[in-house]
Nucleic acid binder design. Sequence first.
DNA 1: GGGTTGCGTAAGCCATGCCTTACGGTAAGC
DNA 2: GCTTACCGTAAGGCATGGCTTACGCAACCC
Lengths: 100, 100
Amino acid sequence: MAYATRALGALGDPTRRIIFERLAKRPRAVGELARGLPISRPAVSQHLAVLKAAGLVTDRADGARRLYRVDLAAIDAIRAWLDQFWDRTLDAFKAEAESH
Amino acid sequence: MAYATRALGALGDPTRRIIFERLAKRPRAVGELARGLPISRPAVSQHLAVLKAAGLVTDRADGARRLYRVDLAAIDAIRAWLDQFWDRTLDAFKAEAESH
DNA sequence: GGGTTGCGTAAGCCATGCCTTACGGTAAGC
DNA sequence: GCTTACCGTAAGGCATGGCTTACGCAACCC
């Protein structure tokens, strides 16, 4: 749950959402990501550090490169968080309708 | 889809997530929200404006007060966004496994 | 081993964003 | 009508965060 909120904080940045999108298609190295973005490679590296701290991605050494991939557990955590709000909101609607 | 990304941007702030949580339980007025938070009422009003612009909440006049409630459509949009990434990531895993 | 490629971290700059106080405007109560 | 309660917006201060350049280190190539 606090897992999900940290993930949402990380996905609040548009650049990190783009990085997250591209990693969802397939795992990539840092430089490969940077070449497709209008920011420097260290900037990408910093974004990846945030995503990693939020549990959204994992990294793995591949020679001199470092491959990042998305972590499905984080997606599931956010989904569970959302569903909880969905239920609460529906209950609130129902309670309000019955009070009339 | 761009709907979902704007919603994620709005939910990136922890205070807005708290406000969103409380509105999910039941609709509330601005002052009522502010009394339960360590920030001023205008600050809450600004947060609500962001949430509203992101399509996460709707507002309705109630006399001198203004009631805010969460919009279920936004939650659904985010969920659809997440599911899309879930599928992509699964496909990437599968493709990688088959390449071995 | 020298050179190249790939990466993380540090330091610093600068814009963005969140918060405050102050103000004006509308709706309810007496 | 006057006062009170509730709210949105403006203006400004200040911290946070995202970006850059510079540096150091490890892994491949020839």
